[in-house]
């Protein structure tokens, strides 16, 4: 993969695509993620968004926070809408009915709209090879509708549909390895990002735009309301997610070439999950000694996944 043609310094100077006054919660990482995405843009762009926090809070009629063309249709179809947009743009250009040589099309969904309900549409879009960048901002649950568990919810996480109780430690199942599943479609470009490592984020997003065919960006997005975490510590939590290994940063090219990104590559040893859990109310129940075996299993699982990833990336 070639380096992006524009320097990070120039990208950081770009006008923001989301205006202030949007109604996202204090401490939510999603607007920061959109801001970083905006810095990576390279020309005319259209955003197709799935129903979710970002959608409802930025476009409460008659107001909008979006400074670039934006469309929302439903929860599970952002990828399909994007397919329509890109194909229509292409054919209209061919017929001389569009003034744009090229328009970048970005689809955005939360983890509910991406890991779960919109999964089929994404798979279809990937298979059709549409030149769309799909970005998921993953806050680990259906936060918009009241913190229900999703396929992205972490094991041990308490949500309103995976309660921690006398006999249950929150969600028991693993998180769906979505970036890997997308890569398995032989997708030209897949990358995981987080808002703390903003340079890594912007450079990867730019690569995603520049690659021919579909690209997928998995952005980790802390949610103080759902996670019961301090609004001032969201970016710190994003950093920790990388350090504890639940959101390692890497790229996958054509589903085959796995590349560990700098911040993850520099990790000598994973930070214990305990430290990440300690900052969030949604894991508070795990302090109970009765869950010590469960916690150990979770730590083992993360360690195992981390070793596997390193192997794929040819490290050690």
């Amino acid at each position: 993969m070639e380096e992006a043609a524009v320097s990070i310094k120039d990208m950081l100077q770009k006008d923001q695509i989301l205006s202030s006054g949007h109604r996202m919660c204090a401490g939510c990482a999603a607007p920061t993620i959109v801001k970083l995405m905006g810095m990576a843009l390279r020309g005319p762009t259209i955003v197709c968004e799935a129903t979710g926090c970002l959608e409802v809070a930025t476009t409460i009629y008659p107001f909008t926070a979006w400074k670039i063309p934006w469309i929302h249709v439903a929860f599970e179809n952002a990828a399909a809408v994007a397919s329509g947009v890109i194909e229509a743009q292409k054919i209209m250009r061919e017929k001389d009915r569009s003034e744009y040589e090229h328009v970048d099309v970005i689809a955005i969904g939360g983890d509910g709209g991406t890991f779960d309900i919109g999964f089929g549409a994404i798979s279809g879009m990937l298979e059709r090879g549409h030149d769309v960048v799909y970005m998921v901002y993953d806050n680990g649950a259906y936060q918009n509708t009241g913190i229900q568990r999703s396929g992205a919810t972490l094991p041990g996480q308490e949500t309103t549909t995976s309660w921690a109780g006398k006999v249950e430690p929150g969600k028991r199942q693993r998180k769906k390895p979505l970036a890997e599943i997308v890569a398995a479609h032989k997708t030209p470009y897949v990358a995981t990002v987080d808002p703390y490592h903003y340079r890594d984020f912007i450079m990867k997003f730019r690569k995603a735009l520049e690659v021919d065919g579909p690209a997928f960006i998995h952005a980790f997005s802390p949610c103080p309301r759902g996670w019961r975490s301090d609004t001032s510590r969201s970016i710190e939590l994003a950093k920790m997610a990388v350090e504890v290994g639940i959101h390692p940063l890497y790229e996958v090219i054509d589903g085959e070439e796995w590349i560990m990104s700098g911040p993850s590559k520099r990790i000598k040893e994973l930070t214990p999950l305990e430290e990440f859990w300690a900052l969030q109310g949604q894991f508070r129940h795990l302090k109970d000694p009765k869950w010590s075996d469960f916690k150990k299993d979770l730590q083992d699982q993360v360690n195992h996944d981390w070793e596997l990833l390193k192997k794929r990336c040819g490290i050690e």
């Binding site: 469309i71 439903a74 399909a80 809408v81 329509g84 947009v85 194909e87 229509a88 209209m92």
Partner: peptide
Amino acid sequence: HTAVIPVESEHSAMSACVGASAIG
């Protein structure tokens, strides 16, 4: 001289129609 999108489901068919129609 028409673009054809062979979608994976009818739900996506109508969704892609909306996206394409939105472009004009």
